[in-house]
């Protein structure tokens, strides 16, 4: 099934994650969607990974059987396969911690969610929901205050530093509540990362990120990436913890209306705690993106958004 094609150069030219490498190797080929286009990612153990886009011309809503297949560029990074529908830059952002040898660095699951990539990214950047959505894990009532933090933007990345939050169980390896210090980094419009005090070594940081794949305007896949200093817990335990956390966010995300991220300044009500998302929405606005967002309150509202998953 095919959805509206994305026409935003800024998004077409980006590298996007489309599958976890082990999923392709062990259970491939993987069929998925990127910006409304159908893709198949293949490459079993020992083969090169390749990605094909199925171009299916549509006439009066009917899909012709003889679609064209187009090969797309392939890049492997942080345990995921990345591709692009346009002219991608040579560089992809780096995560230096990924290369440190004493860490557990791996993908910890790809979760599909029925909302836009923008909403998914904002949820990841949000501290204030911890005591309500992740009570007992990442937050605890009544400790709800979001203390002031600082946000910088250098035209390529957004950084939010000095974030602090009280957490009962900040990570699997935590045994007691702690005030966790956070730094958020938006390394790519759909790749937010967070650096937080490691419960094992308070001088170093655990790195957690989601690489969000915009499947359609209103569907996304959050590929989770972890780089942890955790010596005691096994993969399954860590993955289960991450799955619980995302499982708590998913129904919240899917009950946000509209699903596309509104960029108009009066569409929603930001507060001081939303500094990072305020900057994020401004960035998307400046990038000229219109796919998966609502640019302002008058634009596009009359257009029907027809999509089949």
């Amino acid at each position: 099934m095919f959805a509206a094609r994305c026409e935003d150069a800024a998004l077409l030219d980006l590298w996007h994650p489309v599958a976890a490498i082990p999923d392709v190797r062990e259970r491939g080929p993987v069929s998925t969607q990127l910006l409304g286009q159908m893709l198949v990612v293949s490459g079993q153990e020992g083969e090169e990974i390749s990605i094909k886009e199925f171009m299916a011309p549509m006439v009066h809503g009917q899909v012709f059987n003889q679609g064209r297949e187009v090969s797309l560029p392939v890049r492997e990074a942080f345990g995921f396969v990345w591709t692009s529908l346009g002219a991608p830059p040579e560089r992809l952002f780096d995560i230096p911690e990924f290369h440190e040898t004493d860490r557990w660095s791996e993908n910890s699951g790809s979760f599909r969610v029925h909302t836009s990539a923008g909403r998914t990214v904002e949820n990841f950047l949000d501290l204030a929901h911890f005591p309500f959505v992740h009570e007992g894990y990442l937050g605890e009532q009544p400790y709800t205050e979001v203390k002031d933090y600082s946000v910088t933007f250098d035209d390529r990345e957004i950084w939010a530093t000095g974030c602090e939050f009280y957490q009962p169980i900040a990570a699997v390896s935590a045994t007691d509540g702690q005030v966790t210090k956070y730094t958020y980094r938006l390394a790519h419009p759909f790749c937010p990362l967070l650096y937080k005090t490691s419960p094992v070594d308070p001088k170093r940081f655990d790195v957690i990120g989601i690489f969000v794949q915009p499947m359609t305007e209103v569907r996304a896949c959050a590929h989770q990436f972890l780089s942890l200093l955790d010596e005691t817990n096994d993969d399954a335990t860590i993955k289960r913890f991450q799955a619980i956390i995302f499982g708590q966010d998913k129904p919240i995300l899917e009950n946000q209306v509209p699903k596309r991220l509104p960029l108009g300044s009066r569409a929603e009500t930001p507060i001081t705690a939303d500094k990072t998302s305020i900057q994020y929405r401004r960035w998307l606005t400046e990038l000229g993106i219109s796919y998966g967002v609502i640019r302002d309150n008058t634009q596009r509202d009359s257009e029907p958004c027809s999509e089949i998953f």
């Binding site: 209306v257 509209p258 699903k259 958004c305």
Partner: peptide, 13 residues
Amino acid sequence: RWLDTDDTHAHQV
């Protein structure tokens, strides 16, 4: 009705 319809109405605070 099975389609992903979204934002059929102006959403403004």
